[in-house]
Design a protein around this nucleic acid. Structure first.
Lengths: 127, 127
DNA sequence: CGGAATCCTTGACGATACTG
DNA sequence: CAGTATCGTCAAGGATTCCG
């Protein structure tokens, strides 16, 4: 899609399904993390700070359903479940990391813009 | 943590502030749309299907605060307010469109994976 | 260990009405 | 036209508990 092109509704609808995944706070974390290699459930839980076990389960299910993540159960005692990126997941990692890199590079500018905005807003409120 | 092990907690925290913007369903739509040129409030509302007036206002405020979007008020009657991407916004557009392009290209694979998963799930439930 | 089930709180969002 | 304000709903998500 060229930038000059109009905002195609149909395309955006379809793209949204994938993008909404990025919207899920934890999905991005997990995909990034699994980009570094196969992990077990508890490893992910420890690595992704602040995630509840429920949300982790739900998120992993969603990623598995969408074909980004594979889930392998070893029927041992105690149970052992490994999560890894699929080919699709590894491909998704590319634009995702591009976005992440941009975010890191430009985070300071966003913070600065926010501070400037808040000062302006405070000034107008006082006037 | 080494660069090869991409998931640096501090970095992810900072990156999240920007990525969480992508999480906002409407923000992406709007940034993409404004990528095609300056728009008025009602133009955006009409173009972005399903957005309520309130959410549009809130989202635009957020984008303005973060420095992605500029807001220009013409004190005429009736009022006229124009929204456009800032330099920062246009730069964000790059990784965002990369993600959007990926989403469009691979949407079919996700749908397929989802269908396969659902069939598997149904089968297990029946067994 | 991994996960399912339950309850419960919060805040995100939509609908509506009003203002400049 | 471009908002602001208020209210009600509703589901996402956290805490907890039980199971294989």
């Amino acid at each position: 899609m060229k930038p000059s092109e109009a905002h195609d509704p149909g395309a955006c609808g379809r793209a949204n399904e994938v993008i909404s995944l990025v919207g899920d706070k934890w999905s991005v974390h997990i995909v990034m993390l699994l980009g570094t290699g196969t992990k077990r459930f508890m490893e992910i839980k420890r690595a992704v700070d602040g995630v509840s076990q429920k949300m982790l389960t739900v998120t992993l299910r969603g990623l598995e359903r969408d074909g980004y993540v594979s889930r392998t159960v070893y029927p041992t005692v105690p149970p052992k479940v490994e999560y890894a990126l699929t080919d699709l997941g590894r491909e998704l990692l590319v634009p995702l990391q591009a976005l992440g890199a941009w975010a890191l590079e430009n985070h300071a500018r966003v913070v600065k813009a926010r501070a400037a905005y808040d000062i302006r807003a405070a000034g107008e409120a006082a006037e």
